Simulated scan of single mutants.
Amino acid sequence: MFTGIVTAIGEVVEAERKGPSLKRLAIACPYEAEGIAIGASIACAGVCLTVTALKPRTDGAAGCIFQVEAAAETLAKTVVGDWQPGTAINLERSLKVGEELGGHLVTGHVDGVARILKIDQIAPDPDEPWGATARFHIRAPEQLKRFIAVKGSICLDGTSLTVNTVDDDVFTVLLIPHSLSVTTWGERREGDPIHLEVDLMARYAARLAEARPQG
């Protein structure tokens, strides 16, 4: 379980296909190896992946390299299959009992791939030093649009965000300067694919509504 609060940016340093239904990835990150157990879960751009091996970084930077494997379901529902060395990804360690829940409850089970349609750069106030914000217009997969509501929570590439507007299958979110600087969102461009996980409450509310006519 995660919160959608990104704690680091990792970089894919190795990517190897092991047949049509398995891909092995090595990801360099600033997390110390001593704090990661084999079998631990790490959200990689919103995708919950299991650590299968650890090794030191070779670039002299702090942290470690962790290895994960993506199987058929993950490869079918995400863009993990397209990741290559140099791909930057948002990272979050799994939530521990007693820690602050800063975003919303996120499972790391991606529902589908959305796409950025447009990015509005909002110029900063000349009297404020922290830079511009950006509004992202995003198209959701048709089957997921019913789960997206104004002021509701949504997880995009592992980032917990609040939905600002909804127009059929297109919705907007606003990224503040801090979020743009500590996640991969600052590098996003129009046309980019984005992992989307709908809010748990929306998922269960929809299921209950479907079951009601059945008694």
Rank of each mutant, 00 (worst) to 15 (best):
D169V: 05
M1T: 12
T87I: 14
A15R: 02
V110R: 13
R17N: 15
E32S: 13
R135E: 01
A202T: 07
V166S: 08
T52D: 02
L174S: 14
V198H: 01
R207K: 15
K151I: 08
A43D: 04
Y204I: 05
E14C: 10
C48S: 08
Y31C: 09
P56R: 04
Q67C: 08
C48V: 04
G186W: 00
V163T: 04
G39D: 06
G108K: 07
P85A: 00
F2W: 14
G158Y: 02
I27Q: 03
D168S: 13
E210W: 08
H104W: 04
S21M: 09
C64R: 01
T78D: 02
D127C: 12
T50H: 13
T165A: 14
M201I: 15
A15I: 03
W83D: 03
I65S: 02
K55M: 10
V182N: 03
A205G: 03
I122V: 14
S181T: 08
G152P: 06
V6K: 10
C29R: 09
T183I: 06
A206S: 03
R203V: 02
R203W: 01
T172L: 02
R146G: 05
T7S: 15
E32R: 10
A26N: 03
I148K: 09
K118S: 07
E34T: 09
I176Y: 08
A140S: 12
D59G: 03
A211I: 13
A209F: 01
D157Y: 12
T165K: 13
Y31S: 04
S181I: 04
L54E: 07
I122D: 04
